[in-house]
Design a protein around this nucleic acid. Structure first.
Ligand SMILES: NC(=O)c1ccc[n+]([C@@H]2O[C@H](COP(=O)([O-])OP(=O)(O)OC[C@H]3O[C@@H](n4cnc5c(N)ncnc54)[C@H](O)[C@@H]3O)[C@@H](O)[C@H]2O)c1
Ligand SMILES: NC(=O)c1ccc[n+]([C@@H]2O[C@H](COP(=O)([O-])OP(=O)(O)OC[C@H]3O[C@@H](n4cnc5c(N)ncnc54)[C@H](O)[C@@H]3O)[C@@H](O)[C@H]2O)c1
Lengths: 230, 230
DNA sequence: CCATCTTTGTGCACGCGTTCACAAAGGCAT
DNA sequence: ATGCCTTTGTGAACGCGTGCACAAAGATGG
């Protein structure tokens, strides 16, 4: 398959083809009208733009359950990331082999960063230690941080932080789950109310009516979730 | 601290106070003008709205490095999530204790979900197995899925999927990192160009001029990242 | 060489989330 | 009781991303 059209790519990615073309247009005009995009060339251009053609050394701090899993994760290497070092404060951990790498003590954090030219740090320590670790990383020259600890990190301007909070991910799912349950209950209510005509409940459920529209005064304080955007 | 103002909360969270008030208003009018919000009451209302007052049983499928870390993570229980069961396809894993729970074989997936009333599933299997696992989860009644495998899952309508892709998180950081480097380089160029007057480089850097504005024709194909929104 | 057909690149409009700004509400001191 | 001061709740405006629709471009066949 030497070329692809924006339509095909959009269908595969589940997005609008116009959006996809507009996004590509920011990278330049790499397509050929009437034909589509040259796959190989496009992959290269996107890779280059995303920085995948570079080698990014990364340091992981906090080699506990999560840190160890991350250290051994093969999916990083394939995207151009290389684990340059593993750091832990626990002396018992120091020197141990994790995923083929030797765990080094926190004391060696700064020299490691400077020697390896690390600019991306991953924090997988307990929440209490995260800010202190963050400060040391930034001080040593790290300008991008991926934070797994459930804390908001304060960093100087010019430093990027991305936070991955798995509890919040689950909470978001639970929130929608609760809403789904509430909608269903309300639907059943409505069904029972006008049970005169034999409606098509399945079709109604699929049509997703804007249920729970207004706070229905049924509980003392409204046990049904309020309506908010998205 | 019995009450807080929207201004205080907004500062702590790093958002606009008007946005925060408008968000709260979707839950109802729980504030008192001239005073602020009653902390205890607000916490309860938000918890209830988010579904934190409920108990959410969760099943984790794929007890490898990541799955085991998740199983042992204490941060879930504190938000109302309870690991109802651990599932793995590897017979060697079956029966083993992980984080105080016994790993059960994939055969027991359906009965586990039905017995425990699980509606949220976590997929931590290799990418190749993810879709099959997803299908079985959905078939058994799970309507929310947290997916760690680097694959796009196809699910029927009414099922929510959230995907956590750690490689993409790193890629986003690397992308900004690359852009920062490009901006700096361009800044140094500009500095060298009008080095006639002794400017204040530090202040300039802080002001973050919209550098890299247009594709500067310096490389054969532009080695500087293009400009795109956000 | 011209006509036709496909697909790109993009101007424009729409919709939604965010922010501004202010009237209304309530506490509190006099 | 009255007036002042603080803070909420929200209408209106703004900005930005998304999607529509189409002209321009280029390939392809006659
Ligand atoms: N395990 C999970 O699945 C999971 C999920 C979501 C979030 N998290 C978060 O990730 C972080 C780590 O989780 P975990 O389960 O791996 O915890 P863990 O206790 O297993 O590991 C923490 C590690 O950090 C090390 N450490 C402590 N202080 C340090 C410091 N100042 N410098 C360097 N290393 C230090 C400890 O020695 C330990 O090895 C926690 O903040 C946790 O909330 C974990
Ligand atoms: N380890 C990480 O830090 C990390 C980071 C990002 C993403 N991921 C992704 O998470 C997934 C798991 O990663 P891992 O490092 O834990 O891998 P792993 O190989 O250590 O664990 C995978 C586990 O899944 C089990 N499994 C395989 N097929 C199964 C099936 N059909 N049903 C049930 N269980 C099955 C295996 O027996 C194994 O125990 C992968 O998709 C990986 O790409 C992992």
């Amino acid at each position: 398959m030497p070329t692809v059209s924006s339509e095909e790519l959009a269908a595969a990615a589940g997005v609008n083809s116009a959006k996809l073309r507009k996004d590509f247009s920011y990278l330049g005009s790499y397509g050929t009208r009437g034909v589509g995009y040259d796959v190989e060339y496009l992959v290269y251009q996107i890779s280059r733009e995303l920085g995948l053609t570079q080698d990014w050394p990364v340091v992981i701090v906090g080699i506990g359950n999560l840190g160890a899993a991350l250290a051994g994760y093969g999916g990083f290497a394939s995207r151009g990331f290389r684990v340059a070092g593993l750091i832990d404060a626990d002396r018992a951990m120091t020197g141990k082999q994790v995923a083929g790498l030797t765990v080094r003590h926190t004391d060696e954090l700064e020299p490691l960063i400077k020697e390896s030219g690390v600019s991306i740090g991953v924090i997988a320590t307990p929440a209490g230690a995260a800010q202190a670790v963050c400060n040391r990383l930034v001080e040593a020259g790290v300008t991008s941080i991926l934070n797994f600890a459930p804390t908001v990190l304060n960093v100087p301007e010019g430093v990027d932080v991305r936070k991955v909070d798995l509890s919040i991910e689950l909470q978001i799912l639970a929130f929608h789950e609760q809403r789904k349950a509430g909608e269903e209950a309300e639907l059943r209510e409505a069904e029972a109310a006008d049970a005169v005509q034999g409606g098509k409940p399945a079709a109604d459920a699929a049509a997703r009516p804007t249920a729970a529209k207004k706070r229905t005064g049924q509980g003392p304080d409204g046990d049904v979730p309020a309506v908010m955007p998205a």
